[in-house]
């Protein structure tokens, strides 16, 4: 991360779990417009956490 703060595997797993849960919710209730549109927004926010946190962590772990 740009400011040098540390990221651990639990944080990464939490982000990915949130993503899975939102996707699950969308599958369950996506026929309801209110569920669908808010899941869409949640997933966009989670995608930013992936860029900021998960991608750098995975790269560091792979190295």
């Amino acid at each position: 991360m740009a400011n040098g703060q540390t990221v651990d595997a639990t944080m990464v797993e939490t982000i990915l779990r949130i993503k899975r849960e939102v996707e699950k919710l969308r599958e369950m209730g996506g026929h309801l417009p209110c569920v669908d549109r808010n899941c869409e927004r949640l997933l966009a926010s989670v995608a930013m956490l992936e860029l900021d946190v998960v991608d750098p962590f995975n790269l560091a772990s792979a190295g």
Binding site: A2, E40, L43, A44, A47, M48
Partner: peptide, 14 residues
């Protein structure tokens, strides 16, 4: 897309 737009806001947040 909305995700792109979220990304734009993220860049500007930096």
């Amino acid at each position: 897309t909305w995700r792109d737009w979220e990304w734009q806001s993220e860049c500007w947040s930096y």
